[in-house]
Structure formats: C-alpha cells, structure tokens
Design a protein around this nucleic acid. Structure first.
Lengths: 199, 199
DNA sequence: AGGCTAAACGGACCATGGTCCGGTTCTATT
DNA sequence: AATAGAACCGGACCATGGTCCGTTTAGCCT
C-alpha cells in the first residue's frame, strides 16, 4: 500500500494517461476529420471515412471520440478555446476591461458569428453541445456579467434565457431559413438583453 | 379548356385527394405508432416496428410520413391541435378574454407543461418541429400578444427570443438534467417576459 | 363491365452510426 | 531483458433510417 512517489500527479492534464499510440491515433483522426470537413463539408465526415483517411479501424474512432457528436465537439474544441481566450484575455469590449454591459453585447455579437461560422459542425454535434464544457463556459460567462451589471433575479436561468436564442437551430432558421440579416438578429438580441438588464 | 363543373373544389380539405386505401393505412399506422409509444415508449417506435404492427410494408410508412421525424410530428398533431384550441377559444387566461400579459404568462406555463409532457415525441421529432405548423402558430401567438401589449421593437425576433428558452432541449436540460423545478423555470420565464414587455 | 392510369404497395437494398471480441502492443515492474 | 496485463486495435457484425423499383390496386372514363 505504498504510494510510489515518482508517479506524477495528474495535475490538470486532461487525459489521465493516454498511451502514446492512442494519442498518435487521436491526432491522426482529428487531422483526417479536419481535412475531410474542409474538402467536402461536415456532412461528408462519416466515421468510416475518417477511419479510412487516418488509416485506422472504425472501432478506434469510436473508442477515441465515443460518437459522431463527440468527434464534432473535439473538432470544435480548437476554435472554441481560441474564442474563450478572447473572452477571458482578449481586447475589450469582448475581453475584460470594458463595462459589463458592453462586454455582454460584444459577447452576443461574437457568439452569433462564431456559431454561424461553425454551424455545420455544431449542428452535427447535435444536442451534445449542451453537455460540453464550452457550453458551460458560455452560460457561466453570461451569468457573471449579469451579476456584475447588478441584474437581479434567477441568474442561472436568466443567463440560459439569453443564450437560448443564440442556439444554432434558432439562428440557422432565422438567417438561412427566413433570410434575416445577421445585423438584424444581433440588434434584436441586444434589445432583448438591454431589456433584461434594465434596472 | 372547359372547367368540369362537377369537380368539387378542394376547399380546405388538407389532403388534396388521398386514395381510400392510403387513408386507411395512414390511420392504421398512426394507431400502431400510438400503441407502440404507450406500450414501450417513444424510442421503441422504429419504422419497421410500426410497419409490422400496422401490417404494411416499411416503404408505406415512409411514403405517408416522409421520415421518422414526420411520423412523430403527426403523432403530436392531436395534442397540439387540442392545445391550440385552448389558446384560441378556451377559458382565460390562456384563451381570449384576459389581458394580453396574463395570456402571455399563461401561455408560457402551459407551453412548459405541454412540452415536458410530450418531451419524448418532441425530442424524437428533432429540429423538424421548427418547420411544423404548430411551431409557427406558437410564434405567431406570442407575436400577436406582444403587439397587443404594446411592446415595441422587432416583434418577430422578440417573440422568437421568448420562445427559444421553452425549447425541449433547454427544458429537459434544466428540469431533468439540473433538477430544477418546473415552478422555478416558469418563474424565471415569467420574469424574463415581464422585463421584455415592460414599457 | 372493362380498361386505363396514376397512385400506392412491399420488401429487398443501401448507408451509416454504434457494438463486440479475439488478437496485438505498449509500458510499468522486476 | 523478460514478463504480465492493461490498454488498444481492427474490422466483422448489428440496428435502423431511408431509397428504389417492379407489381398491385383504386378510381375514373367510356
């Protein structure tokens, strides 16, 4: 029952010990998927195609990413991290340093654009986005900004209500389906937000 | 170029001439699906199972309902119509006769409950609900109420923003996932709504 | 009634997400 | 270096949504 002192603590490393070949395959698969997505669009990203392109078996894809939705989320991870970095440490008004309301409005604009920009992947990820860390971050961010503004009420749910209209399905319907302009959608969201935070 | 005077106008009959066997099969399929859904839950409603239960070929199910989502929407049609009737002609405050704000709040409560009550079917219908007539009705109703209240702004989008947080995926996550009570979710929505309409 | 045509039918067939398990390979331990 | 066993791999296999097309049938017209 002795603790081997040489074992490095997991610290914050995401994967709690992934074998080297496994890690290599993960990278190969991500690269393959990225290539497929840019060459033929997200809907061409079939699990078998990714496996073939990466030169591994289909089972491996599933072991690494659990499901198609999981793979999509992994693909989104990069851009999502970048976006989070902008929010957390980028220039105002999206990043810190601006008044909270300005940050909130900038957040909305940025989210609309980011979501529409990646709509294929996000849609392909389906409902699973909700359980992804990225989504939690968004919710938390809005909630904190609302608190900073001094908004009263059930902040978690209020935040959720502000985020809900930014869902891919909603935006796709409005912009692609109904032909509304992004500006108009954003203006309406900003209006909504101002009404919500107005004291 | 003579108009045959004996041809009855289509009037408002939904199906523009469905053959009798086709109509019979549609009913049989709906009945089969309903039985399956109540006996084993919505996820047991597989297209082949429905076909078998109704005693027809699989192709028929697809010809009648286009897709699994279409079948689900057809299954929802009944309860949806009933709900619309309540809104259009039922007792206040959900139905006409109450102040518009009261009607709006009653709408929210009712929608939350209806949605959660049918969550399995709605979820199984997927994004297709958005294009169903029922969804359009909801949007229109909220929009009209907002107008009646005298709310200013981009009413179509404001309505959409109020409806978005009532989406199945959102409600499921909050109530089932996070364990929030329906009352709490409703209170937050009512709060949101009051802020939006507040002049 | 008989015949003609558009519509409906059925079920084989395909594509794809997801599961499983026997065999292989990495890595820690001695 | 040898060893043990956990982790990983591949690809056959399954389930199910969706398509297709040769065959059947309802409904109309003469």
């Amino acid at each position: 029952m002795s603790l081997p002192i040489s074992t490095p603590l997991p610290l914050l490393s995401g994967a709690p010990h992934e074998r080297r070949d496994a890690a290599r395959n993960r990278e190969a698969l991500l690269a393959a998927a990225r290539e497929l997505v840019e060459r033929e669009g997200a809907c061409a990203v079939t699990m078998e195609a990714v496996a073939a392109q990466a030169g591994v078996g289909k089972g491996t894809v599933f072991r690494r990413f659990e499901s198609r939705a999981g793979l999509m989320i992994a693909l989104l991870d990069h851009s999502e991290s970048e976006w989070q970095a902008q929010v957390l440490g980028g220039p105002p008004p999206l990043g810190p340093g601006a008044p909270a309301l300005d940050r909130l409005l900038a957040f909305g604009r940025s989210r609309i654009e980011a979501t529409l920009g990646q709509r294929e992947l996000i849609a392909a990820a389906g409902g699973r986005v909700r359980t992804s860390g990225a989504f939690g971050f968004v919710l938390m961010h809005v909630r904190l900004l609302l608190a900073e503004i001094g908004t009263e009420g059930d902040l978690p749910l209020l935040a959720s209500s502000l985020v809900a209209p930014l869902d891919v399905t909603v935006l796709e319907d409005q912009v692609l389906g109904q032909g509304m302009s992004v500006d108009r959608v954003y203006d309406a969201w900003a209006d909504l937000t101002r009404r919500v935070v107005r004291r």
